[in-house]
Amino acid sequence: MDNKKLIISPSPHIYSGADTQTLMRDVLVALLPAFVVSALVYGQSVIAVTAVSVAVCVATEWLIQRYLIKGPSTVGNLSAVVTGVLLAFNLPSDIPLWMVFVGAVAAIGVGKMSFGGLGRNPFNPALVGRVFMLISFPAAMTTFPDPLLPAGFDAVTGATPLSALKEGLMSGAPLSEIVGQFSYRDLLLGIRSGSFGELSGLALLLGFAYLLIRRVITWRIPVYVLGSMALMAALLWGVDPSRYADPLFHLLTGGAILGAVFMATDYATSPMNHRAMAIYAIGIGLLTMIIRTWGSYPEGMSFAILIMNAFVPLLGKYVKPSRFTRAANDKSSR
């Protein structure tokens, strides 16, 4: 045995391959099907909006990290790219690019870096950017080009299914007529108007399956969010089907799947154990339905997620994971 230098460290001596960059890359791959659908439906404006959003998010993080925090660059972990794509997915495809610029700076600058960067931000950065834009540019954020019209008519705006529902009900139109304009097949495939990432339920579910296979997220938060939404929608629908839309309509519209799979599951802003995850996710589902049904905005997913984000630290403090054993002097756990 020759005397070579040995490496000493405490156990464990092997590690899983998981690292932040790989996880974020997997999220980007999972977003790809939805991106392709949007680009097919809305054309190249989708690519332009996404490119600007990603570029500004990455640049903002790099500049703040370098000149304000004065720490090593963190853009390599790709989390700013994910935020950029998610922000873009929440925008109308014809939004002016300078507005995207403002939203992206708000998302990363205010939503993420002002708290110290990845892992420290309490609110989902992409949603901070989106809500910032919704309040600053309400008109541009709520008019969407109608993909069903041939080219050349792109000045005409189409109603999203949920805004059609809200406005239709206020004007006294019968519900069956409003909902009847949208076929579930088209909603699933993405042939309708709306924020461009939320178009196709099928593409988003494909991404969900990929995230599950790659073990980036677990099924819990998306299933609890969508399940509680469906349950509340089913209850309302059961009470009065002439006033409330059916559960499937709610699940396929208003970014429900995009929010449940990609936004509510954001690591930094969602709870850390299964019990707290359930409370958080069910809260999002119910709040979304409450805002959609009785609020003044047609869709409620963004607000519901941000509201529940605010409860995450509290849940972390008081809702503990299922322990192996009860402590001698502790009756709360187990």
Partner: peptide, 21 residues
Amino acid sequence: RDCIKCARCVSVCPMGLEPYL
């Protein structure tokens, strides 16, 4: 690197602890 609060440590702990905390 910085903790990203992915909760893996919590979900793999066989004793139900919160290692990140």
